[in-house]
Every structure is written in C-alpha cells, then in structure tokens.
C-alpha cells in the first residue's frame, strides 16, 4: 500500500483529499466566472475568449482531463466518506437536536449531487448543444487577419438561452446550491488541512463565506442580467 493509498483510505486522509480537490475545483469556479462575466462586455469579448480557449487545442484537453479527474476524485472520496459515516450510525435518535451545525454543512451531499446534475446539464446545454440545439448552433462571421472566418457565436447562444425563463430558473437554483456547498466547503477545508488559529480562523471563516456568496451572486447575475437586458452592447460584433 503506497503512502497516498494509506492516506486516502483513512478518515482524515479522505477529508484531505476532499479539501485539496475542493480547492482545485474552487479555482475552476472562480476562473469560469471570470470568463463568463465577459458577457457584460459584449459579443466580441465573449466570442474572442471562446475562440482563444478553442485555440488552445491539445492543451485544452489536458486542462479538461485534469479537471475531470479532480472532479471524479472529489465525488469518489465523498461516496467513500458518506458510506463510512452512514455505517457509523445505523440507528438514529427519536428526538434529534442541532446545536451549531449550519444548514449548508448538513446538506453537503445533497447540494453536491445537485451541482453534479447541474454540471451535466450545463455541458449538454451550452457545450454539446444537446438540449437546445437551435440556440447552440449560432455562428458569426468575423474578419481575422484579412480573411473572413465563421466562428461559434457564444454570446448569441447565451443571450438566446437565457431569454427563456425556464433556463434562468434552473441556473439560478443551481447557483444558489453551489453557493451553499461552498459556504461550508471553503471555510471547512482550512480545518481539514490543519490551519486553525484563534487569531485568524474567525476571519478565514468570514472571508470564505463571503467568497462563496459572491461567487454565487456573480453567476446568478448572468442569466438574470440577460433576462433583464443588462448585458453588453447587443448589436456590436
């Protein structure tokens, strides 16, 4: 048994794995929001960014493979922990009482499963275009290096997508649940990694919770902003 296997097989080590993969996934959540907020700058900013990502070629797949393996490890460890935890108490209390546990901390598995379902839906919606093919299949013509090329009009896809209230509702609910998941997860990972100090911990907890709420609000602003017509210059291309 290697050191890493020994670590991940233990209750503490599995939590460390959750924390480390959680940090990496949080960086993705932050980066993805940065990219998405370009929608407020208008069509060209979004589509240029999308073209830049596509232009990474094989490197894009390296990043995607890394992200996927981190995501899978986070889920596998969550299942391993949940099974251990469930087995540790098979008979519950007739009368239960919650003293200090936050709502967010009590529904981590549920909010996590909802986020997973949302990620799959989101990929099928905007990445693969399976759910709403008509909105997905939009292109624009731009002059690049003196030649006219046709590229995916991501801006148009997002705007047309979120003009449909049903998607706005789904995305807003999903982002509230993601924010709830991060509300506990972000501050909790410091404890798991052993970072605790009477002077700093209260600030760490507050900042982490603020970041969770800010990330959630940032994501929610996009579908809501599109629906209310607050996004960048519509006609410009």
């Amino acid at each position: 048994m290697s050191r890493f296997q020994r670590l991940l097989a233990s209750s503490i080590g599995a939590k460390v794995g959750m924390a480390v993969t959680g940090i990496l996934l949080s960086f993705f959540v932050i980066g993805h929001l940065m990219g998405n907020l370009l929608v407020y700058q208008g069509r060209q900013a979004v589509n240029d960014y999308a073209a830049f990502l596509k232009g990474l070629g094989p490197w894009l797949w390296v990043v995607r493979a890394g992200l996927l393996s981190v995501f899978v490890l986070h889920i596998v460890l969550a299942i391993q922990l949940k099974r251990r935890n469930r087995a540790a108490r098979t008979v519950g209390y007739a009368k239960d009482h919650v003293n200090v546990a936050t709502v967010a901390s009590r529904y981590m598995v549920l909010t996590g499963m909802c986020v997973l379902a949302f990620v799959l839906l989101h990929l099928a919606h905007f990445t693969l275009g399976w759910i709403d093919p008509a909105t997905h299949a939009v292109t624009e013509k731009v002059i690049q290096g003196g030649v006219e090329i046709e590229r995916h009009d991501v801006y148009q896809m997002v705007v047309a997508g979120f003009r449909q209230p049903v998607y706005v509702v789904i995305y807003v609910v999903a982002m509230v649940l993601l924010g709830t998941h991060l509300f506990h997860g972000l501050q909790s990972l410091f404890q798991t990694l052993g970072v605790r100090h009477p002077g700093y911990t209260p600030t760490i907890v507050r900042v982490c919770r603020l970041v969770a709420v800010a990330l959630s609000a940032g994501y929610i602003s996009i579908p809501v902003g599109v629906l209310l017509g607050l996004t960048g210059a519509e006609g410009a291309s």
Binding site: S11, I12, A14, K15, V16, L81, R84, N85, A87, A88, R89, V98, N99, V100, A101, T102, S105, R106, M108, H184, S188, Q191, T192, L193, G194, V195, R196, P198
Partner: peptide, 27 residues
C-alpha cells in the same frame, strides 16, 4: 467511527468544552 464534517457539534456538547483546535492539530 465516522469522519469529521467540521460542524463542531462535538465541541458544543462536550462537558469539558474541549476545543476543535485539537482536531485541526490531529488532521
């Protein structure tokens, strides 16, 4: 025994009010 979820219900009920700082140390 199960794994710690960092809810600190333990610290809240501990008759000796042991701090969960100990758990961070052990982690």
């Amino acid at each position: 025994f199960g794994a710690c979820t960092n809810q600190y219900e333990c610290e809240a009920v501990c008759p000796k009010e042991i701090s969960v700082t100990s758990i961070a140390m052990l982690n």
